[in-house]
Design a protein around this nucleic acid. Structure first.
Lengths: 237, 237
DNA sequence: GTGCAAAATATCGTATACAATTTAGCCGTC
DNA sequence: GACGGCTAAATTGTATACGATATTTTGCAC
């Protein structure tokens, strides 16, 4: 198997050049659920896949481990993160904690053209929901997260934006693991409601809706401890 | 110069072994202000200082760059971060955003022994304020941050705790750069007030005090744009 | 055929080596 | 004396190499 999916933006200004691209490519693959939780990411394989040395592969995996998307176990290797139910709860607790604040900040600074941009996103999201197929599903997942990330971007705080990046990405992992409903991106309409509340400047309501929205996503999860079923238990009985 | 200051905790379970120690050592040096913003951290020097190869030095610097304590510029090297006034504002905005929430969560779960622990910290902090000398000053800086970090730990959310780690460390950098008053750790008494409010279960007041406290720290900063004064301007006139 | 021990294999941890880029010094010209 | 370009030194970017640790396989005894 040769290098399959690269094709990302050219480059940023910071960080080491090569590793960044690999990092982003893997990150996208995880967020779009082409890579399942627990999948082993050996440095050799990653390096071969992107035609770089283990050095760069390793750097990329390290970077991903800082965001919690990959867990590296000493002398054993790197794996796509497999968040525990407790971790999942903490991720959503963190989102409940920060997203209302981000929303308030964003609403305070939002411009008409940015509102337009948000609506554009919503439209796109709705369109994807109608389509069929894996690619549409993946795009939909991404679009669903993009709504929250765009709000963070509008808030104008780069630090919170980066944090939300991490939280949204990890949320995607959690949903992949524990999500029940087939509807991957829950409550598209809820996004619309939030925008509407922002537009009529009803911040308290917007925050309430945001919290409701997050709770709604979380409610779709089945966070019972799974005892790594891959063993004989799966076949007994 | 040989290896000077190591002596940290032995090891953790995750991440690569060696780089972690170096990372922590440099991190401590930055937070305690033994390393000034803008100081160049060449991979060679770091490696020599800790008697490891550039590989590990590089990994440590990369890790620090993810926390925003070090900025690596492509093909130019790594430097102790020199946060811009805008960055400084965002750091404190982020703290105002998350710390009340963390405080509420912590207060809801806090046990008597943890309250005791907090008071212990306060005592230690007060003791250090009385002492003289660089080492006492450094310990005081660390203790001041530890109060906020302990609260995050008590909240029981590992994700928020890690985020606070980053925010507190970066705050230390900002204060080193833009702080005016000689009193490095402002408002020790404010920490005490917060604990008191928690103890009598007055959460709203505790949050109010926390926000006031953060604002107080920020008010001591002089966040005017400094046009990299290292040039001729410093000598003209 | 099952269970354990030991070699073989795969994979990670770290160091070293080489290529590419930037920075500093030098020299000649204007 | 100041400016511009050229060469040399220093520093980073990436690859390869070697030793250490974990995993799998093999072989043998029971």
């Amino acid at each position: 198997m040769k290098s399959t999916a690269i094709a990302l933006q050219t480059a940023e200004d910071s960080a080491d050049t090569g590793a960044q691209q690999i990092r982003d490519a893997i990150r996208d693959a995880i967020v779009e659920r082409r890579l399942s939780p627990g999948t082993k990411l050996s440095e050799n394989d990653v390096g071969n896949l992107f035609n770089v040395s283990r050095t760069l592969a390793r750097a990329a995996l390290q970077a991903l481990s800082y965001e919690g998307l990959v867990s590296v176990e000493k002398n054993r290797g790197a794996f796509v993160a497999y968040p525990s139910p407790e971790e999942a709860r903490q991720i959503f607790a963190a989102r409940r904690l920060v997203e209302p604040g981000i929303l308030r900040e964003a609403a305070a600074r939002i411009t008409p053209s940015q509102i337009q941009h948000l609506k554009q996103l919503l439209l796109e999201e709705g369109r994807l929901m109608g389509e069929r197929g894996q690619t549409a599903r993946r795009a939909e997942i991404k679009a669903s997260g993009d709504f929250h990330l765009t709000l963070a971007a509008i808030s104008g705080n780069a630090i919170m934006q980066r944090f939300m990046d991490e939280l949204v990405a990890r949320s995607s992992l959690v949903i992949a693991l524990y999500g029940q409903s087939t509807i991957s991106s829950c409550g598209h309409s809820e996004h619309g409601d939030i925008v509407a509340a922002i537009e009529r400047n009803d911040l308290d309501e917007a925050c309430r809706l945001m919290l409701h929205h997050i709770a709604h996503i979380e409610a779709d999860l089945d966070l019972r401890e799974r005892k790594s079923v891959g063993l004989k238990e799966a076949f007994e009985l």
